[in-house]
Design a protein around this nucleic acid. Structure first.
Lengths: 215, 215
DNA sequence: CGGCTAATGTACGAACTGGTTCGTTAGTAG
DNA sequence: CTACTAACGAACCAGTTCGTACATTAGCCG
């Protein structure tokens, strides 16, 4: 008698189909960009047909926006899971930097989508109701750490939370976003697993060093 | 009797036409990405016709590669013009960081092209004979500065030139590459002229602080 | 079981897009 | 002046691509 909630118990799938479309679309868009992505190709890599993409999402652009939303949801959740209680300011900011670095290097698709979205001047991001507002939790976290650091006299007092976040993000994003051009030009793959621990320590060293220098 | 060199004195333009095509193409590709760029649109924004694009460049891809090559030539020249004689190691690396930051923020088109090229896994960059090899002069410059810093005991001794270049580039590229998503999500335009001097000082502070911390 | 709707598949079309064909004109060499 | 070639233009073509019209099936409700 396991009663299904009112609607949505129709078992010719629906939810699963939508999820599958989103998965495939994420890969396709991240791989080829918005203009380069092919709706037919996404459909082909799905169990279902192109018809369903239009049935559930309405069109290429709306599908892309949903993909973006789901991707951003990922980091936002990761950010909310960060816990720095019990760490001193320097340890806390280093921890956050390392987690950010880890998350970015492990989610190349997301970084690629962000790059793509920037090429399009974030016009789709702006169209998304879920994303355009949605304040980001990291900033509050960083603000808190910076405040503690200042109180204890171990951090410079002119450091701004958003700026520090940008500094950390820069170094965490770069190896992923520019992996191929950088790799080709300097003969060094910035995502080489063997170098990863090194870069991870480097982000931490960098932010902490910056925050410790006098204002 | 001003004799023109053997050929190429034909004055129904040619060189000028090619340059114009390249200029327009640079904007179009940077604006819409490789797949999003339209050959017809490039032609329309030119004094000439699409026929000429194929006449001079062979096709969309070859044109794009030429655009890339010209864009990269820009920074390479800027890099070669950097002069740090007479500066102490910290001053030298700060100067380089600031110039890199200036150059990147002033050449958004180039940064966008690099982003686009990374989406395509640098496949076109690899196809370019001019670019694929062409060692980059900055690395040597940085190596020299780091060596001096180590000798004088003012820099950590485990800093690598390519890594330091990546650190500087990260922070210089980010505001341009992620201007729109970052701006939308954090309500702060990272390229706002009013914040520029601040970020410029920040890159310098960051690298110098990093290099000064003990290994 | 009959009917109703959500879910799905097939085939198609209109517009676009990279690339080409064919022909023309400007300038120069002889 | 004539012949020749580099430079150029207009129209066109074939393949693609987003989107849709139409038909169909699965499952549920009464």
């Amino acid at each position: 008698m396991s009663d299904q909630p009112p609607k949505n118990s129709r078992l010719r799938d629906a939810v699963r189909t939508q999820a599958e479309i989103l998965d495939v679309a994420t890969r396709e868009f991240a791989e080829r960009g918005y203009a380069g992505a092919r709706v037919d190709e996404i459909a082909a890599l799905t169990r279902t047909t192109k018809r369903m993409i239009y049935y559930y999402f309405g069109g290429k652009e709306q599908l892309y926006i949903k993909v973006l939303e789901r991707a951003y949801t990922g980091i936002r959740e990761a950010e909310q899971a960060v816990d720095v209680t019990g760490l001193d300011p320097a340890g806390a900011i280093r921890h956050l930097a390392e987690l950010t670095f880890d998350h970015h290097t492990e989610h190349a698709d997301f970084i690629r989508l962000v790059s793509i979205e920037n090429i399009h001047r974030a016009e789709h991001l702006a169209k998304s109701e879920t994303l355009a507002k949605a304040g980001t939790p990291v900033i509050d976290l960083i603000s808190g750490i910076l405040a503690r650091g200042r109180e204890q006299g171990v951090f410079r007092d002119d450091a701004d939370a958003v700026d520090v976040h940008m500094m950390i993000s820069s170094f965490a994003v770069f190896p992923v976003a520019n992996q191929h051009t950088f790799g080709t030009l300097f003969g060094r793959d910035p995502l080489d697993p063997g170098r990863r621990a090194h870069y991870r320590r480097m982000v931490g060293d960098m932010v902490v060093a910056y925050l410790r220098t006098g204002s």
